[in-house]
Nucleic acid binder design. Structure first.
Lengths: 211, 211
DNA sequence: AAATGTGAAGCAATTCACAGCA
DNA sequence: TGCTGTGAATTGCTTCACATTT
């Protein structure tokens, strides 16, 4: 399942995820075969780019016809490793952390937040959205039971590095970091930073254009 | 303030935002002058790239010396249009929406959520984090008073297009969309999509590598 | 001496355009 | 005919390397 192909760029992986969404949308129209042009409509990426992306992983299409929707979907899921459920730890049971824990969208896509971690004594020992809150220093210990492989960081910037270290110790192999500072982790751990303020800063630029 | 330069790519804008964070970090070390190499340390981008990005907007540095921190910061803020506060409407007063409304990180960077919109009668008329909740169809009317220019969408996918349309009618000029489907807007409106599930799908790929 | 700003080179990503297959 | 898969062309982005400036 795990492709050993030389290197897939991050951009390609993100596009694959978009293609999946597009397929879901096309599926709701009742179609069973989809062309690169159809997908272009839904994703905004050019048909040529879509074909090249897909052909990198194999020949999934039928010339003159298109791609069989169900088959393509399962191929992409295979590439992205979405055929199994994924167990996730979340550190920082504040507003954002709680919101993500209760977010249907993640669960529906197969991501289950199985343990919360926070140092606030008012939160430790309680449950949020039916998920237990543990102290952060118990992460390694608790994950022997919880067996998660992914982590989400929603603590304030000052605590994010400490939390990332605990996640690495706990054996997590990839981390989604919402804190506004990048964290340092060993080579073999994959981190993705999502800085919400940065998204708005990006947009603010456009307010200064024309008019 | 608004540069009319031919075209800045989105990547450059996002990096500028990272440079700003780096400058904040350097500032805490008490330095007043910073080199492209210093910034490289904090951002992970190469010094050459940083110099090229900055030189695109002007000659901000002093050869042999570096960049004056305060001055560079204010230049970048000027480019990104961050010298003034920004007023933001948020539609979808659910978990994620409430969390963002209460999020210190946004306020500290000058983004103020001044009005919430939701169609749930249990929420309309109440306040969340001291911010009033209005019905979505009142957005245009309310924004005559609220005078926001930016919008955040945290409603479910099915409602996101409708909400985007209302935001356009209300005169908002850029939109941060957390719904997992892209929305259609007129040419002159800038949308940025942040699909949280997509971030985890991206990371899941790396779980399938090496072992 | 040290670091900027920038042509030119090098590399990566995307599109073009079409041969080949259903 | 219609659409895939892919070499070749193109476009765009990043790095190199150095003349220039303080």
């Amino acid at each position: 399942m795990a492709k050993k192909e030389n290197k897939v760029t991050e951009q390609v992986l993100l596009r694959l995820s978009s293609y999946l969404s597009a397929l879901d949308q096309v599926q709701q129209e009742g179609k069973h075969v989809v062309s690169s042009m159809d997908m272009s409509k839904f994703t905004g990426y050019s048909a040529a780019l879509i074909r090249r992306d897909l052909s990198y992983f194999g020949e999934f299409g039928v010339p003159g016809k298109g791609y069989y929707l169900a088959s393509l979907k399962s191929q992409i899921c295979g590439i992205l490793n979405l055929n199994s459920q994924h167990r996730v730890l979340l550190a920082g049971a504040g507003n954002l952390g709680s919101a993500l824990t209760g977010y249907e969208g993640l669960r529906k896509k197969g991501f289950h937040i199985v343990g919360l971690f926070d140092n606030d004594p008012l939160k430790v020992g309680r449950q949020i959205w039916n998920t237990e809150v543990y102290p952060i220093n118990e992460m390694e210990e608790q994950n022997k039971e919880l067996k998660a492989e992914m982590g989400i960081i929603t603590v304030p910037a000052a605590a994010s590095q400490e939390v990332a270290d605990r996640m690495v110790d706990a054996g997590l192999r990839c981390i989604l970091n919402f804190a506004p500072t990048a964290v340092q982790v060993p080579e073999h751990i994959k981190v993705r930073n999502v800085d919400l303020a940065k998204q708005l800063e990006f947009l603010a630029y456009f307010l200064s254009l024309k008019e």
